[in-house]
C-alpha cells in the first residue's frame, strides 16, 4: 500500500458549535417574543416536575407559561404539568441523556410563542450531560435536593457555575439527615458569587414564595427589556 502526503491540519473548532448556533437562533426568536426562558437542571428526582406543578398552579392567571418536558422514555411529566393547568410539550429523547437545541427547535415547530410570557424547559435529570448543551435559554436554574447530599456542588462545579438561581429542595427532610447546609452553599459561592440561593420544600410549600417572586419579577423585567431593544 503506498502512503500519501501527510498533512497536519491545526484547528480550533468547538465540538458544540453546531448546537450553539441553533441555540443562538432560538435565543433570538425568544427575545423577539419577549419570552423569558428557563433551563431547569438537576440530578434525577430532585423535584423539578413537582416544582413546576406548584409554579404553574400559583401563576395561573398571572403569567402564561409553556413547559417543555425532557424525559428519557415517558410522557408522565408532561401529563403532570398539563394536569396542573399549563400547556406542556413532552420531548422524549429515547435514551439520550440531555436535551439539545435541535430538539427544542422541533418541539416548538408551529407553536405560537406570542401566546406565552415564559417557557420552562425541564431538562433530563442528569448532573453532567445537559451542561454542554445551550438551549437558547435566558437563565439556568439548578435544583439540588437534600437526599443527594451536600457534596454535589464540590463534585460538579461546572453545573452550578452557570446558574442564576440554585434551589435547595426537600428541606422538609433536613431534620432527618446530616446534610451540611453551610458546606453546600459555600462550595457554590466559590464558583458562583452572584447566585440567588433559595431553600424550598415542594411538599410543604416552604420557601416557594421566594421562588415565585423571583420568577415573576424576572419574567416581567425581561418582557420590558425585550420591548426596549426593538
Amino acid at each position: 500500500m503506498n502512503t500519501g502526503k501527510i498533512r497536519v491540519l491545526d484547528l480550533q473548532r468547538s465540538v458544540t458549535a453546531k448546537n450553539d448556533e441553533i441555540a443562538a437562533a432560538l435565543r433570538d426568536r425568544f427575545r423577539r417574543n419577549g419570552l423569558f426562558v428557563v433551563n431547569l437542571l438537576s440530578g434525577p428526582g430532585a423535584g423539578k416536575t413537582t416544582l413546576l406543578e406548584k409554579t404553574v398552579q400559583a401563576l395561573e392567571g398571572k403569567l402564561r407559561c409553556l413547559v417543555l418536558e425532557g424525559d428519557l422514555r415517558t410522557t408522565n411529566d408532561a401529563d403532570r404539568i398539563a394536569g396542573s393547568g399549563a400547556d406542556a410539550i413532552q420531548i422524549v429523547t429515547n435514551g439520550v441523556c440531555h436535551l439539545d437545541s435541535k430538539m427544542i427547535t422541533s418541539a416548538l415547530e408551529g407553536v405560537e410563542l406570542d401566546a406565552y410570557d415564559a417557557v420552562v424547559i425541564e431538562n433530563v435529570g442528569n448532573l453532567v450531560c445537559p451542561n454542554s448543551f445551550d438551549l437558547g435559554e435566558t437563565v439556568r436554574v439548578v435544583v439540588s435536593s437534600v437526599p443527594e447530599g451536600e457534596d454535589k456542588p464540590a463534585k460538579y462545579p461546572f453545573l452550578f457555575e452557570g446558574a442564576e438561581v440554585v434551589l435547595l429542595n426537600k428541606i422538609d427532610l433536613l431534620p432527618h439527615t446530616p446534610f451540611d447546609k453551610e458546606a453546600f452553599w459555600s462550595a457554590i459561592g466559590r464558583v458562583n458569587r452572584s447566585v440567588l440561593r433559595l431553600e424550598t420544600s415542594c411538599t410543604t410549600g416552604m420557601g416557594l414564595d421566594g421562588w415565585l417572586r423571583w420568577f415573576q419579577g424576572r419574567a416581567a423585567e425581561w418582557k420590558t427589556a425585550g420591548r426596549e431593544t426593538e
Binding site: 501527510i6 498533512r7 497536519v8 491540519l9
Partner: peptide, 14 residues
C-alpha cells in the same frame, strides 16, 4: 471548559 478539535492528521492519497 475546552471541548475542541485541535488537530487532524490527514494522509492525502491523491
Amino acid at each position: 471548559r475546552e471541548l475542541e478539535v485541535r488537530r487532524i492528521v490527514w494522509e492525502d492519497d491523491e
